[in-house]
Structures are given as C-alpha cells and as structure tokens.
C-alpha cells in the first residue's frame, strides 16, 4: 500500500511541477494545489498506512493507526485551503488590474531601474 501511494505522490509532484512551470496563472495555482496534495499524502504515508485498526484509544494496544499524521495533515489541509482561496482571489484581482493572466507579461522591470 505504501509503495502504491508513494507512486501516486510522485505522479502528483510531477504534474504539479509541470503545471507550475506553465505560463497561465490558473494552471500555476492548480499546480500549487497538486503540490500540497502530494505533501499531505506524504505526511499520511510517513505515519504508515494500516487498514482496519483504530487509533490508540486504550492502553496496551499493539495494533493501531498513528493518530499524529492525521492531526498534522488536517492542519496542513486547512492552511493550504485558505492560501489557495486567497491565491485565486489575488489572481482574479491581478487579472482585472493588469489585463493579463500570462506570467511572462508580469516580469516588470521599470521599478528596478
């Protein structure tokens, strides 16, 4: 199971890098979303994926799911959700203001002399 998920993480990261390297702002944002998915899956996988066992509820259990990665991934998901929402709004506002969603046209050097 871990191997399978690891491959998924790899594919997600690959697609994310591809999307982030493109020129359209919307694709870049989708890329960052994919990248954070990959990171979150990695957190879960690193805690070990076991099926059919509950988290630690009573003392002395030997077979259990590690609860810590779940707590971590929840926090990370909330943060990346908020940031992605903000990023989308920012992109829309920038599109209105600059009339382009092409990152190539957003280089801007006039302030740098």
């Amino acid at each position: 199971m871990e191997i399978f998920v690891s491959i998924i993480i790899g594919v997600l990261t690959m697609s994310a890098v591809y999307m982030i390297l493109s020129k359209s702002l919307l694709r870049i944002i989708i890329g960052t979303g994919l990248l954070s998915h990959a990171a979150h899956l990695l957190v879960l996988t690193m805690g070990g994926l076991k099926t059919g066992a509950a988290p630690v509820l009573v003392d002395g259990v030997t077979e259990y799911t590690d609860p810590l990665p779940q707590a971590l991934v929840l926090t990370a998901i909330v943060i990346s959700f908020g940031v992605t929402a903000f990023f989308l709004v920012l992109a829309y506002r920038a599109y209105q203001e600059l009339n382009t969603d092409n990152i190539e046209e957003m280089k801007g050097t006039e302030s740098n002399d």
């Binding site: 702002l25 990248l35 990695l42 920012l90």
Partner: peptide, 29 residues
C-alpha cells in the same frame, strides 16, 4: 497593479516553500 504583480510571485514562492516544509517534516517524522 505593480503590487499585485509582485504579490503573485511572493505568494507562489512561499506556497511552494510551505509544501516543501510539510514534505520535510513528513520525511523527518
């Protein structure tokens, strides 16, 4: 306009850095 343009780059760099941070923490854990 110029502020929004640069904010996008700032945001993008930091979002990627955050994803890497989560990955690094996961690997360490």
């Amino acid at each position: 306009g110029v502020q929004l343009r640069e904010s996008i780059k700032y945001l993008l760099v930091n979002v990627i850095a955050s994803a890497l941070f989560v990955m690094a923490v996961a690997l360490l854990y």
